[in-house]
């Protein structure tokens, strides 16, 4: 609170009261109206019964844990293994996509920060950014075309004789993982880039000079500097992947259900906003817990991520 007050008075003295008030008002509106209130409303929803309009405010309109109980136990006596399985699978897939992105983006970010220069650098940045001018749904469909039975990849693979019958990349979820990984590459690249860019080139050369192999230079010198960037990138990619809807909808194989699709079904198909809210809350809480756990394991502080 004192920190906030200090920021406010600093801004007042530097930019004047009007600007300070505007910024304070905008931030307050953003946090309160756009973030906190909807979340509270959803939380409240998740503890209520799905009642017909006439009964709202009536005696049956009380708080309940029924929606959460449903996630755990379903309608019957045993565990609701189906929904829990979907959640676990979603988390695992999100972790996989995050790891994939780290693997892809770490070298790119390093090259951007320390090797590329001039035209090469600009081309790389443009190459990274331009694909994201295209709408997300369109991009997902493009991946479907790319990976489809008669798609480009199958075409090339068959033409070169790697395989003879079309491979069903969509059913194998290759298309989904590729699409998701691709969708958040930019976030990961720039997070890691931000961190790696602060590394003094001389440190790399010093390590080289002392006989270190490239592998060790990265492990001991570059990676520790990149760690906060990787953590913040990984957090974003993980959260966004776990919460993605369009890509799983379009690229997911017929057997693959994403947890967000369950939420979507409760809201839209079943019209049960209360249960949908409960499921959304579950996803949010589980993801947050998982992220904090990972940060503990890898010894990353929140402050490091905020940089």
């Amino acid at each position: 609170m004192t920190a906030l007050r200090r920021i406010f008075s600093e801004m007042t003295s530097r930019h004047g009261l009007g600007v300070a008030l505007f910024v304070a008002g905008a931030v307050l509106f953003w946090v309160l109206v756009l973030v906190v209130l909807p979340q509270i409303a959803m939380l409240d929803y998740s503890f209520r019964h799905n009642l017909p309009r006439a009964e709202l405010g009536g005696p049956r309109d009380a708080h309940t844990l029924a929606n959460y109980r449903y996630f755990l136990f379903g309608n019957g006596a045993g565990f609701n293994t189906l929904d829990m399985g979907v959640l676990l699978k979603t988390l695992a897939a999100a972790v996989f996509v995050t790891l994939l992105d780290i693997l892809i983006c770490y070298p790119i970010a390093f090259i951007l920060a320390h090797s590329a220069s001039g035209v090469g650098l600009r081309l790389m940045v443009i190459g990274l950014i331009v694909p994201f001018w295209i709408n997300e749904i369109l991009r997902a469909f493009a991946f479907r075309v790319l990976f489809g039975a008669t798609g480009v990849i199958n075409g090339i693979g068959q033409a070169l004789g790697f395989w003879s019958t079309p491979v069903d990349f969509v059913r194998a979820d290759v298309a989904l993982y590729a699409g998701l990984a691709y969708a958040y590459v930019l976030l990961m690249v720039f997070s890691i880039y931000n961190a790696v860019e602060t590394l003094d080139r001389n440190q790399i050369e010093a390590a080289r000079d002392m006989g270190a192999s490239w592998w060790r230079v990265h492990w001991r010198v570059v990676l520790p500097i990149a760690k906060p960037g990787i953590a913040s990138g990984a957090t974003m990619v993980f959260m966004l992947t776990a919460g993605a809807l369009a890509a799983p909808q379009i690229l997911g194989g017929p057997s693959n259900l994403w947890f967000t699709q369950l939420i979507y079904q409760w809201f839209n198909d079943a019209g049960d906003w209360q249960r949908g809210s409960a499921y959304a809350t579950i996803l949010l809480v589980v993801c947050l817990v998982f992220v904090f756990l990972m940060m503990r394991v890898f010894r990353v502080s929140i402050a490091a991520i905020g940089r």
């Binding site: 003094d200 001389n202 010093a206 080289r208 000079d209 002392m210 006989g211 001991r220």
Partner: peptide, 28 residues
Amino acid sequence: PNKRPTALIFQNLALFPLLSVAENIAFP
């Protein structure tokens, strides 16, 4: 550079900030 019998002390020293003093010295 990693195969030459030279050791370079850089203009800005280039010590590793995230390693301890002993780890820095023992890096080679």
